[in-house]
């Protein structure tokens, strides 16, 4: 009986250890809580309820390596008139009047030794949600993927033989 219980405990410990070990390498959720932003911009209302296109604000994603953050004037295009009574919109108007950029907190950060290009991925037909998750349902944007190399490579391997846009697994493609 004692031997059986020791075996059971060992087996359980091994199983838990293996699960933790494999999970640390597999695709996993990033930070489950997003950082607090200077202006509480709700993506779920803009991209979800109102159905705005991601490219309306992040227009660089299609054309350049970076998907830009919009200037305050892009927000003010609507918010000069729309819901001006809300405190967060008034905060936004304050930045606009002072001519200051909003100090947004970066959610997705890649180290310098990785060269990621938004344009190439958008051109290959990937949706924003493939990497960024259901942003249209997020009140506060969280880092959806782990952003580890294994996460990038797993997708690149799957699409290695894609007829239109084959994804390369050459190291130099991202590290140069």
């Amino acid at each position: 009986m004692k031997r059986a219980s020791i075996l059971l405990v060992t087996a359980l410990a091994l199983a838990a250890g293996t699960a933790a070990f494999t999970q640390s390498f597999s695709v996993q959720l990033g930070n489950p809580r997003g950082p607090a932003q200077p202006v509480k911009f709700p993506h779920d209302i803009h991209a979800g309820k109102l159905g705005m296109d991601c490219l309306y604000c992040h227009y660089g994603a299609e054309k350049s390596a970076i998907a830009n953050l919009p200037p305050v004037s892009t927000c003010m295009g609507c918010h000069k008139i729309a819901v001006t009574d809300r405190p967060e919109v008034q905060k936004l108007a304050g930045y606009y009047e002072r001519g200051e950029p909003i100090p947004w907190v970066e959610v997705y950060r890649l180290p310098d030794h990785v060269k990621f290009n938004h344009k190439r991925h958008v051109r290959a037909g990937l949706t924003c949600q493939t990497c960024h998750g259901p942003v249209q349902a997020m009140n506060v944007v969280v880092q959806y993927p782990s952003l580890k190399m294994g996460w990038c490579v797993s997708c690149h391997r799957e699409r290695m033989n894609d007829p239109g846009f084959p994804a390369s697994t050459d190291c130099l493609i991202c590290h140069h």
Binding site: H113, S168, D170, C171, L172, H175, H176
Partner: peptide
């Protein structure tokens, strides 16, 4: 350091 797909010799710094 290895020969990449394009036949160019690469140097992968993080590695």
């Amino acid at each position: 350091t290895y020969r990449g797909e394009d036949g160019l010799v690469g140097q992968i710094y993080p590695r």
